[in-house]
């Protein structure tokens, strides 16, 4: 049984203090009522009030949500297809190039991805706006989805699919009835990852977007380049709250599902 030693407890405390102190300070100061942003001037929720009246932020939030919803959904479909092709597709012409194109965007600097997409959109005379941001986000997130889904596909027992085929299932219904339920957790995780990456992205959206569409990160970025803004502190606090609740819920749900699965398996063995 391992116990906390003095050294380990100290390094954990310092490490987590470093990780959480900046965000905590941001949250605390979003309730600062004083005129000076850096000096505490009493508790107030006035910045939240100003935020909900700020049309520009609300518009940007709406654009961001639309982009994230569309791009993560398309990316999940394409990424799952790509993972299936990579793991189960066997040999075909250009397989190496295909797997290269799946892995390269994961390590590509954002500035280069953004620049190259911008040059493409301008080159073919495509008007930049919400649609081009969706295309750009779909492209890099499908690669993340594909990595997550293929790790699940690699680990599961192929004979289950083969049994379904032997018993007269068509390949399509074997995928729907056997493969998809098994890889579903990875597909959902991939969708969540794609959604978060899209919400988070500043650099690529900045290149891929035109004057007609501004996402929330672009709005935040232009507001904070010059200094600390109490309205952005309030906005950040709301976003951090949503993410924290979401992540904790997701981990509780998956924990419960794991416990249930374990119980079911034990019951099946006992019978």
């Amino acid at each position: 049984m391992r116990r906390f030693t003095w050294f380990n407890a100290t390094s954990l405390t310092l490490g987590f203090a470093f990780l959480y102190l900046p965000i905590t300070l941001l949250v605390i100061y979003s309730f600062n009522g004083g005129r000076n942003v850096a000096v505490w001037g009493g508790f107030s929720t006035k910045w939240y009030g100003e935020l909900v009246q700020n049309e520009a932020f609300l518009d940007a939030a709406w654009v961001t949500l639309k982009v994230a919803a569309f791009s993560s959904t398309i990316a999940t479909v394409l990424g799952t297809m790509a993972a299936y092709v990579l793991v189960r597709g066997g040999r075909f012409h250009g397989r190496t190039l295909f797997s290269g194109m799946i892995y390269a965007p994961l390590v590509m600097p954002e500035v280069i991805t953004g620049l190259s997409l911008l040059l493409l959109f301008i080159g073919i005379g495509f008007d930049r706006g919400i649609l081009t941001i969706i295309l750009a986000h779909t492209t890099f997130s499908m690669c993340y989805v594909s990595v997550v889904v293929s790790s699940r596909l690699v680990s599961f027992d192929r004979s289950l699919e083969e049994a379904a085929l032997d018993l007269g299932c068509s390949p399509l219904s074997a995928f729907r009835l056997v493969t998809l339920p098994i890889i579903a957790p990875a597909v959902i995780a991939g969708w969540l990852l794609a959604f978060t990456l899209s919400l988070d992205d500043l650099v690529i959206a900045n290149f891929a977007s035109g004057p007609s569409a501004t996402t929330l990160p672009m709005k935040i970025w232009s507001a904070v380049r010059l200094g600390v803004s109490p309205e952005i502190n309030a906005l950040s606090t709301i976003l951090i709250g949503i993410v924290t609740v979401g992540v904790i819920t997701a981990s509780l749900v998956s924990k419960r599902a794991a416990v249930k699965r374990q119980r079911d398996e034990q019951a099946a063995v006992a019978n």
């Binding site: 300070l25 941001l26 000076n36 978060t196 952005i232 950040s236 976003l239 993410v243 992540v247």
Partner: peptide, 26 residues
């Protein structure tokens, strides 16, 4: 989970949070 959690929060916000800490009157 505590190490991964910040990873899900906006990168931009995490970078920005240091502006208030490190500024001259921060």
């Amino acid at each position: 989970m505590l190490v991964i959690l910040p990873f899900w929060t906006s990168f931009l916000i995490r970078v920005y949070s240091w502006k208030g800490i490190l500024a001259g009157s921060g």
